[in-house]
Amino acid sequence: MLSCLTCFLLHRPLGPAPRGGEMVYIPDDSDFSSFRDQCENLEGWHCRYNKGGVTVWSQGQEESCTVQKIKTRISCKDVPAETLYDVLHDTHYRKKWDSNMIETYDIGRLTVNADVGYYSWKCPSPLKNRDFVTLRSWLPLGNDYIIINYSVKHPKYPPRKDFVRAVSLQTGYLIKANGTSACILYYLTQVDPRGSLPKWVVNRVSQFVAPKAMKKIYKAGLKYPEWKHKHDPQYKPWVYPEQNTLPSVSLDELSVQHADSLENIDETGLPEDHLNMSDNEA
């Protein structure tokens, strides 16, 4: 997850909309290939920001539309692709660098490279806090790595009164090796925040919040090797499935999270000058 405002229009670290719109399924090779193509193909994308090694694009929708598809890219010097892959998986390390996170945990495993998890984050006042339950899947592709997710419903984790349950329609990361000690990170997402947001929020995400969040992940990658060396360095269940002790979850327990079944709040009247951006400002 990036920061809270980014997640409104961008999303837990971290796929395609379910086939047929109804059945929960685990992404296959074609889904990962399609996601990589979306990250690398610029046709139909409009550049919204390009500065300091970070680029932000949006795709073919009006700025006033809340459910936008947004893509970001950052070049990460001195951070190998496998290191950034570990950073995006390691929930214990996320507590060190993701200051907007309230809570994140893995609910259960589906396969050796797919699980179900929960993520919630604090939004700057007066916006309401959001959370997700997602099916996440990942795949190493040579020296590149992909992590994708989409929202699902789990009977034991219904919407909570203290959060607005948002919906990830398509979200993920592509980490491309750039030599042996550097990489390029793409983040592509389409999220329904279940709220009517002011136009200025949409603009601020692409111009300030998304670049700031990508730089935060980059810095986390630079510091990760030293941190991991002191914190169970051999434990990486996303790399070594035999280390995974999560309870098994069956696809039959899950259903697709449809946005129209969730609360939709109206925050369009919130004035920009009353928003506390604090750590989210670039």
Rank of each mutant, 00 (worst) to 15 (best):
W200C: 06
Y186A: 01
K153Q: 13
T180Q: 05
V209R: 01
Q170C: 01
V205A: 10
G142P: 07
V116K: 12
M214T: 04
R136P: 00
R109N: 15
A114K: 11
K95V: 13
Y118S: 13
Y186K: 00
Q190Y: 04
C183V: 05
S196A: 11
A213H: 00
W121H: 10
Q207S: 07
V209W: 00
N100Q: 14
R109P: 14
Y119I: 08
I102H: 15
N113Q: 15
R165D: 02
G117Q: 07
A182N: 06
C183P: 02
Y93I: 14
W97K: 05
L174T: 02
N149E: 04
D162F: 04
F163T: 10
W121E: 10
Y173A: 05
I107E: 06
E103T: 13
C123R: 07
S196Q: 09
T171D: 05
V202L: 07
S120C: 11
I146A: 04
T91C: 15
R94K: 14
P140G: 09
T111W: 15
I148Y: 01
K212N: 05
F132L: 10
D192P: 04
L188C: 02
D162H: 10
S181I: 07
K156C: 14
R136L: 06
I175S: 01
K199Y: 10
D144K: 03
G142E: 10
R204G: 09
P140H: 12
D131M: 10
P158A: 05
T134C: 12
Y118T: 10
N203F: 11
T111P: 13
F208K: 03
D131T: 01
S120K: 08
V201K: 03
Q170H: 03
C183L: 00
K96M: 12
S206D: 08
T91W: 09
L139C: 13
Y187H: 05
